[in-house]
Simulated scan of single mutants.
Amino acid sequence: MDLKQRKIWNENHKILTDIILKPDEHLQAVQLFLSQHSLLHSSSAGKKAKATLADEVLKSLDERTFRMYPVSNPDTKNSIAWHLWHIARIEDMTMNILIANERQVLFADNWLKKMNIEFAHSGNDMSEKDIALISSKIDFYSLLAYRTAVGKRTRDIVSSLRPGQFKEKVEPKRIKRLFEEHAVSQNSQWLADYWSKKTIAGLILMPATRHNFLHLNKCIRIKDQINKKTKRTC
C-alpha cells in the first residue's frame, strides 16, 4: 500500500463519514467499510489480492525492529510490538463489547497465554516499565494471529448491522463492562468517557478504521527510521 493508495484510503474514509448515518445508503456504507478495513489488516484477513497497510508494516520486519523500545520518532517512542497490540485490543473491545455486547476475541481462544502477556487493557497510560515488558515478551506470531482474528470478527459484526443502527449510542452498561473485564485501566477513565459519547458510527470511523490507519503508519515510520540508522552504521 503505497502513498497514493493511502491518499485514496483517506478520501474514501471521508466518503464513509458522509454516508454512514444515512439509512438509505447503509449497504453502501457497509461495503465501503469492509473495503477500508481490509486494507488495515493482513491480506488473509480481508482476502485482498493486493498488499495492505498491515502487509507494508510486516514486510522485511525483523524481530529487533519489532521489539525496539524506546524509539526516537517525533510522534511516538513506543515499539512496533506495542502499537500492533494496542490497535488489536482497541478494536477488539470496542467492536465486541461496545457494539456487539459479546465476548471479546481475547478471551475466546486463550490469546493472553498464547501471546505470553498478562495485560488485557488497551495500553493507554501504560508505564514505561510495562511497555518495555510487553515489547520484549509478546509472541510475534500469536500477536499477528490475534489481530487477524479480531479483524475477521469485526467484519462479521459490521456486516450484521441493520439500517439505522449506525445512529445508536453506546449503552452505559457496555461502558461498565470495559472496567469489569479490565479492558480499560482505571487510569484511562477518559477513554471510556470518550467512547460513551459515541454512536456506533463513531466507533466504526475511529477505533475500527482511522485508529488502525494512524498507528500502522507510525509503525512504518518506526521501521523505516530504524532501517536507515542501521544502514548508516554498517
Results as ranks from 00 to 15, higher is better:
Gln225Thr: 06
Asp24Phe: 12
His26Leu: 10
Ile226Asn: 13
Ile138Ser: 11
Ser159Gln: 07
Lys114Pro: 04
Met93Ala: 04
Ile204Cys: 07
Ser42Gln: 15
Gly151Arg: 06
Arg67Asn: 09
Arg210Ala: 01
Leu143Ile: 06
Asp62Thr: 07
Lys176Val: 01
Ser135Pro: 07
Ala81Leu: 01
Cys234Met: 14
Ile134Phe: 05
Lys113Pro: 03
Asp55Tyr: 10
Met95Trp: 01
Met1Asn: 12
Gly151Pro: 00
Ala88Glu: 08
Gln104Lys: 14
Ser196Asn: 12
Leu133Arg: 13
Leu178Asn: 13
Ile200Gly: 06
Gly46Asn: 01
Ile8Ser: 13
Ser160Tyr: 05
Tyr141Gly: 13
Ile200Lys: 15
Leu214Met: 15
Met206Leu: 13
Pro163Lys: 13
Ser79Gly: 11
Leu98Ile: 03
Leu191Phe: 08
Ile19Gln: 10
Gln186Arg: 08
Asn212His: 14
Phe166Asp: 01
Val150Tyr: 09
Asp55Ile: 02
Thr233Cys: 06
Ile220Asn: 09
Lys223Arg: 15
Asp18Val: 03
Leu98Thr: 06
Thr230His: 04
Lys197Asp: 00
Ala145Glu: 15
Glu181Tyr: 11
Thr94Ala: 08
His211Phe: 02
Val71Tyr: 15
Lys14Leu: 12
Thr233Asn: 09
Asp193Leu: 14
Ser38Trp: 01
Asp139Leu: 12
Ala100Tyr: 02
His121Glu: 09
Ser42Trp: 03
His83Gly: 08
Lys231Ser: 01
Thr94Phe: 04
His13Val: 03
Tyr194Val: 04
Thr65Arg: 04
Cys219Tyr: 02
Pro207Thr: 06
Gly151Thr: 00
Gln36Glu: 06
Met95Thr: 15
